[in-house]
Simulated assay, not measured.
Amino acid sequence: MAPSASSTSALVDLVALIARSLVDNPDKVVVREAPGDRFPRIELSVAREDIGKVIGKDGRTAQSIRALLNAAASKAGLRAHLDILD
Results as ranks from 00 to 15, higher is better:
L68A: 11
L44N: 05
S7W: 03
R38K: 14
D58S: 15
V12L: 05
L22A: 03
D27R: 14
A62R: 07
K53Y: 10
S64M: 12
S21C: 06
R32L: 09
L82I: 12
V23R: 03
R60A: 13
R38H: 14
R38G: 10
T8V: 12
D37Q: 11
A62Y: 05
D13G: 12
D27F: 15
V30D: 12
D27V: 15
D13V: 02
R20Q: 15
D83R: 06
P3R: 10
A10G: 12
S74T: 11
A10I: 13
E33Q: 08
L17I: 10
A76I: 06
R60P: 08
I84W: 01
R41K: 11
P40A: 09
A76M: 09
V29I: 03
N25F: 13
N25L: 13
R38F: 14
V46S: 04
A62G: 05
K28S: 15
D37V: 14
F39N: 14
A16K: 10
L44D: 06
S7M: 14
E49R: 09
L82E: 02
N25I: 13
K75W: 05
K57W: 06
D86E: 14
K28F: 15
V29G: 08
D37S: 10
L82A: 03
A19G: 04
S21N: 02
Q63C: 07
V23I: 01
D13S: 12
G59M: 04
L69H: 08
L11T: 08
L69S: 01
E43P: 02
R41N: 13
A71D: 09
I42V: 05
R66Y: 07
N70I: 09
S64Y: 04
G36I: 04
S64I: 08
A47Y: 07
E43Y: 08
A47N: 09
P26L: 00
A62C: 05
